[in-house]
């Protein structure tokens, strides 16, 4: 079985983002970039499938600028076998990413595709579902557990108020949630080996995809600062306010 994993280069989760003073976007100059945490979980899951003997090959793919080859290498150091980088300008919209990935899937014919449920920069939570739609494949989003059986994968999903398990016919798309696994650390020898693993670079033109603009980013602003409210003098007053003014209890 072949598993395809998608990865995205994003700002490191430890770094506080700052909106540029001209409100055109956030400032990413010289900040630490990293593998999107949900993508890291996707890579880990695929590598575990390989270690368990369920998968024969793990292919990792990323869409974006040249710099995202660094994240492909990270995924290779974590255990993926080979990488594909689709080189584009800036950060393409989810639908365009999904269209590019769909072409890769058509070419690679994986049995299982694992993506992160969302990227921690755009917080869109779209690409996996869109890819599933374009390929007319079943989807198991927000996965906290995967079980492979003959020709199907059972995905336990984290849904509001509990868990839902669905059975998907393979090939299928799974998007990862936080509790699916805890990713390993890349070891030094594996980081060195990753430098020699194959990494193929393609352009949207190579894949025959013409990307289109669907949305315009008008501006990016810092969130409104929260204002202090009122001081209550007693627990009774607090309970009353919460019941009748705020209506939250």
């Amino acid at each position: 079985m072949k598993v395809l994993v998608t990865v995205k280069r994003v700002i490191d989760y430890n770094v506080k983002v700052r909106v540029k003073s001209d409100h055109s976007d956030v400032d990413l100059g010289n900040v630490k970039m990293a593998l999107n945490p949900f993508c890291e979980i996707a890579v880990e899951e695929a590598v575990r499938l390989k270690e368990a003997g369920s998968a024969a090959e793990v292919v990792v793919v990323s869409v974006g600028r040249k710099a995202c080859q660094e994240q492909v290498r990270t995924a290779l150091a974590l255990g993926a076998d080979r990488g594909i980088h689709i080189e584009t300008e800036a950060s393409p919209e989810s639908l365009n990413v999904a269209k590019l990935l769909a072409k890769v899937v058509e070419h690679e014919q994986p049995d299982l595709i694992i993506t992160g449920k969302q990227a921690i920069d755009s917080d869109n939570n779209q690409t996996g579902q869109m890819l599933a739609a374009l390929l007319n494949l079943p989807q198991g989003t927000f996965a906290s557990e995967l079980k492979l059986t003959d020709g199907t994968v059972n995905v336990t999903r984290e849904v509001d108020g509990g868990l839902q398990t669905v059975a998907l016919k393979l090939p299928a798309i799974v998007t990862t949630d936080l509790r699916l696994n805890e990713p390993r650390y890349a070891s030094l020898p594996n980081i060195m080996k990753a430098k020699r693993k194959p990494l193929e670079v393609k352009t949207p033109a190579d894949l025959g995809v013409e990307t289109k603009t669907h949305t315009k980013l008008v501006k990016v602003t810092p969130p409104a600062e929260r204002q202090g409210g009122i001081t209550v003098s007693s627990v009774d007053e607090l309970v009353e306010k919460l019941k009748y003014d705020a209506k939250v209890i």
């Binding site: 700002i11 506080k16 983002v17 909106v19 956030v26 921690i120 920069d121 755009s122 917080d123 980013l217 008008v218 501006k219 990016v220 602003t221 810092p222 969130p223 409104a224």
Partner: peptide, 8 residues
């Protein structure tokens, strides 16, 4: 976006 640290 960015976990609520910016508004697009």
């Amino acid at each position: 976006i960015y976990a609520g640290n910016a508004i697009a």
